[in-house]
Structures are given as structure tokens and as C-alpha cells.
Simulated scan of single mutants.
Amino acid sequence: MTMESKRPTFHAAVERETGETSVRLSIHLHGQGRASLDFPVHFLRHMLHVFAVHGSFDLTVSATGDVEVDDHHLVEDIGLCLGRAIREALGDKVGIRRYGERHVPMDETLARAVIDLSGRPAFVLKAQFTDARIGTFPTELVHEFFKSVANEARMALHLAVLYGENNHHMAEALFKAFGQALREAVEETGGGVPSSKGVLE
């Protein structure tokens, strides 16, 4: 049975092994907001924790990588695994809402996430970070992480920081909005495939 003909189970586990990283990740999209995160990129651990809590997902990530070079490879590969797990968990997408949208404020910041689980990857991020790093975390990796998720999940993901001043708040509001929008998109509606074509690949 191919993934496309499999009904949604809302949970999946994936592994990725390369010469640069080793990632094991599992997610339950109809979970309780529990996160178990073990990898050496502290800021991304914090972001994935708030993603899980605010999306009510159960998320487990165990990963290692060449962070002595920089965080890029590990952040990108965790994003790839998260996207792939979301796609596998949704199977043929029968009975899900498909679309999700949330605005999330965090103090002076307001972020927006809009999702279409269309089967066609597309990614847009509109955000103006004012520093190159949040602590030791390169702000450019926020874009790389979400791009990896969108491509592997085959979703259209549109993210924006509408306004804000604190870079930590901007990034965190994006992750919270993404989690809440995804939770809406994977809600069960009791219908068929939410597409006029009759299929979401």
C-alpha cells in the first residue's frame, strides 16, 4: 500500500542518516503537547517545545550532527524529518480540514501562519530579523528550517512577522503560530478528501 492510499493515522516515525547528521523523529498530530527533545541546538529545542505545546502534538526528536562546523546541517535535517513525518502521518488526507490559519501575539510581536496541506510544496517567510543571531542561533536558520518542513510535508506554508522588535519574540511567535495553524489543518472533519479533484497527493 502506498502512502497516498493509506488513511491518516496522525502519527509517524522517521529516521535520517547522513555523513553530517543522524536524526530520529516521531510525531503524533492528535497528541497532548508532550515533547522529548535531545539534540545540541538549544534554541531550536526551545522552539520545537513551544511548537508541540501550542499545537498539542506529541513530538520526540533525538539527533546528533556536525554542530562544530555550524548548526545548519542539523537544523535543516530535523526540518526535513519533521516535514516527512507530517506527510506520512496524514496519508491520503481523507477527512482532514486541510487549511489552517493563526495569528499569534507575543508581547510587542504579531506573527501569522497560513497552511494548505495541498500536496504541493511552497514556502514564503516575511520577517525582518534585526540581528544575525538569537543567542548563538543564526536567525537565517529560521527560514531554512521552515523551508525544509514545507518541502518535505508538501504543504504551502506562508509565514509572516507582521511587526515586532525582539528577535526571540519574532521567532517564537512564528513557531507558535505554525503549531496552531497545523493543528487546525489536521483536524478531522468527517468528510472525504478536501479537494475538488478528489485527491491530495
Rank of each mutant, 00 (worst) to 15 (best):
M1C: 07
M3Q: 11
R7F: 07
H11V: 06
H11D: 10
V14K: 09
T21E: 04
L25R: 14
I27S: 02
H30Y: 09
G31K: 12
R34A: 13
R34E: 12
R34P: 03
R34Q: 14
R34Y: 09
A35N: 08
L37C: 13
P40H: 09
P40Q: 03
V41N: 00
H42L: 01
F43G: 03
R45E: 13
M47R: 01
L48Q: 11
H49D: 10
F51C: 02
F51Q: 00
F51D: 00
A52E: 09
A52F: 03
H54M: 07
G55C: 02
F57T: 03
L59Y: 04
T60I: 05
V61D: 07
A63Y: 03
A63C: 05
A63V: 10
T64L: 03
D71T: 10
V75E: 06
V75H: 07
E76A: 01
D77A: 02
I78S: 06
L80F: 00
A85G: 11
I86Y: 03
E88I: 12
L90D: 11
L90G: 06
R102F: 13
E108R: 12
E108H: 11
S118L: 08
R120S: 00
F123D: 06
F123R: 11
K126H: 13
F129T: 01
F129H: 03
A132H: 12
I134W: 14
T139I: 09
V142E: 14
H143R: 15
F146H: 15
E152F: 13
M155N: 00
H158Y: 08
H158F: 08
A160N: 04
A160H: 07
A160P: 13
L162E: 15
M170W: 06
A171T: 08
A177V: 04
A177M: 08
Q180H: 01
R183E: 09
E184L: 07
V186C: 11
G190A: 01
G190L: 01
G192W: 10
V193P: 01
P194N: 04
P194S: 06
S195C: 02
S196V: 03
S196E: 01
V199T: 02
E201M: 08
